[in-house]
Simulated assay, not measured.
Amino acid sequence: MNPASVPDFTIQSLILNADPVVQGVMAMLVLASLACWAIIIEKSILFGRLKREARSLAALAASGAIQPPEGDAAKDSLSGAVLRAGLPEWREGRDQHESAGEFRDRLERAMRAAVTATLRRAEPGLPLLATIGSVSPFVGLFGTVWGIMHSFFGIAAKQDTGLATVAPGIAEALFATAIGLVAAIPAVIAYNRYSIGLSRIRQEALGAAASLASRLARRPAVLDGRRKAGESA
């Protein structure tokens, strides 16, 4: 066989010689893969920070401290958001018609809302991972079907069913499926990992908020404030 007649199956050749529709599918899948990895890197950093903040909040609840953390970074942290939500309710004190349990529930609701609002900011990007993971294989399959169909048209036009005629078009078509899987597999793994991780962080933070609310409910904020005022006078 003449070496010049051997098809070129390099990645560059598969992309450049593919049908324009298949090339468009490949470009979309490559962009989806890049977006997937950008989200993975960003979420890895973010979730690492949230895990540390959830542990810090749990340690704060265990120690019974009620002073919000200082510094700009600490103010934006999970523990800072929880204390900023709960301390105003605590300083307002227990209403005379409010039971101890109702006072504790009011503190806990405020802190739980802060946890939910803070962790909700970590959710953007996860739906895109789920979409990439579920749609990319089908987009790649569309490119494969289109490429094989285009190969059959070429066979009919050349009236040649030899392997040298069929193989390049089929290889280009299957390459689209391969790119779809390359985009989908990391997206599915990352989505499952981050969804479970976010659920665990939420549970730990909500448990710490409930413990902190229970501790605060047993401390008379109004009396403490009057005592401090009397001492200063």
Results as ranks from 00 to 15, higher is better:
Pro3Leu: 05
Asp8Lys: 01
Thr10Ser: 14
Leu14Trp: 01
Ile15Val: 15
Ala18Glu: 03
Val22Ser: 03
Gly24Ile: 08
Val30Tyr: 03
Val30Glu: 11
Leu31Gln: 05
Leu34Ser: 11
Leu34Glu: 07
Ile39Leu: 13
Glu42Leu: 10
Glu42His: 05
Ser44Met: 10
Gly48Trp: 00
Leu50Thr: 06
Glu53Ile: 12
Ala59Asp: 14
Ala59Glu: 13
Ala61Asp: 00
Ala62Gln: 14
Ala62Thr: 12
Ala65Tyr: 07
Ile66Gln: 13
Pro68Glu: 01
Ala74Gln: 11
Ala74Thr: 08
Gly80Phe: 01
Gly80Asp: 02
Ala81Pro: 00
Pro88Cys: 03
Pro88Val: 02
Trp90Asn: 00
Ser99Met: 04
Gly101Gln: 07
Leu107Ala: 02
Arg109Trp: 00
Thr116Gly: 15
Leu119Gln: 10
Pro124Leu: 04
Ala130Asp: 00
Ile132Thr: 01
Ile132Glu: 04
Ser134Gly: 13
Val135Pro: 02
Pro137Thr: 03
Gly143Lys: 07
Leu163Gln: 13
Pro168Thr: 05
Ala171Tyr: 03
Ala171Gln: 08
Ala176Val: 02
Thr177Pro: 04
Ile185Asp: 01
Val188Asp: 07
Val188Ala: 02
Ile189Met: 09
Asn192Gly: 10
Asn192Lys: 06
Ile196Leu: 13
Gly197Asn: 05
Ala209Thr: 04
Ala213Met: 02
Ala221Asn: 09
Ser232Met: 14
